[in-house]
Design a protein around this nucleic acid. Sequence first.
DNA 1: ACAGTTTTCGAACAGTGTTGGAAAACGTTG
DNA 2: CAACGTTTTCCAACACTGTTCGAAAACTGT
Lengths: 208, 208
Amino acid sequence: MKLTKERIVNAGMAVFAEVGYQNLSMRQVADRLDAHAGSLYYHVRGKDELLALMADRVCRQAYDAGTATLAALPPAATWQDRIEAQATTLRLSIKQHPGGAQLLAESPGILSPGSLSLMERLLRTLLDAGLPADHCGIAADTLLSHVTGFVLQEQNQPTTAPAVTGERYAELCEQFPLLMGPLIPRLSQDEKFTRSIRLLCAGFAALS
Amino acid sequence: MKLTKERIVNAGMAVFAEVGYQNLSMRQVADRLDAHAGSLYYHVRGKDELLALMADRVCRQAYDAGTATLAALPPAATWQDRIEAQATTLRLSIKQHPGGAQLLAESPGILSPGSLSLMERLLRTLLDAGLPADHCGIAADTLLSHVTGFVLQEQNQPTTAPAVTGERYAELCEQFPLLMGPLIPRLSQDEKFTRSIRLLCAGFAALS
DNA sequence: ACAGTTTTCGAACAGTGTTGGAAAACGTTG
DNA sequence: CAACGTTTTCCAACACTGTTCGAAAACTGT
């Protein structure tokens, strides 16, 4: 079958989902298409462009998933609910691919049409909520960079927790009493995320 | 001169500052020490550990710079001022190295002592401000992931702006009217950053 | 000076992104 | 059908990368 930019990105997304960001190679993408690595370079300027295209696709998927989530919301939903819905679907869309946050982080995100769509919709919900326009830009920007930053830290934490114990644990408790202390509740990642989003929304509302 | 973990990390930081994150190779680090690449592996388990050590050093530098900035603050400074000071010095410390945000993003950040120090100090300023303890954890976490996410997008934007014009520009304006429209002010990165931090602080205050 | 340990070398391995010329496939025209 | 030009693919290379391993060197203590 003929090689196409579209098919190359498809294959890229497939091996990306299997081996993750770090181990993605042009040769593996070519193998999945029964082609040779050099042939890809006729359709794609280099690995960078392929990664950028894939990042855009992730954004598009997140955008489409977001429209579905928004449509399922009750009509009485507040603008905070709508922001939270977009943020969580974005997070889940990125988390579907191992290392997906790195993909979005490394490609120059803002110029991609998919990323722009996400931004535009965030802006519209904020403006429709009646928030002052000169704050909405920063608000949407902050929201996006926060989500990517959050998933980045989330995906890079080793899945098998080392579970610090013994002497090393006592040393940590002494050095960082607040962090290890009882004041800070240990929440699940999901809860941490939604709370951080609510935090941001509260900030938007307060600065109005 | 003898090879040491310390000297290896020093050399790593030097070539990191010159060639950036993407083009950092063990051989270049070894060259700078007049050694061969294989010799590094006697002191360092692999490139991953070297990167983790370097990330920790960046965090330490940011921590030390933060203490200086905090000391220069007037005694009447609010807790918002102190949070903003820590955030901006962290941002500047990361920006000193090309690709520094990627370095922090890829290494599992939370377990590094330098990162823990940053977190601990953020927590203390928030708790000292009288904010409710069960919110401070998420607040500090949100703050850190936001700063890394911000600098990440900042450092990956191509320095030479492509400056979209002509037909393509009109198309963008039609597709993303809010983004391209006059409502959203075009601010400098510095201003965007401080405003986003103030936004977060407002959120912290509002949820109390 | 010898033995034992710590450190460094140097060559190799498997893998990467990328390039350029040759070869095949394709569509169009005579 | 045959010849042509174009588009697309192959294939072999190049310069790298991280990493490993046995041998050589340097250093230490007795």
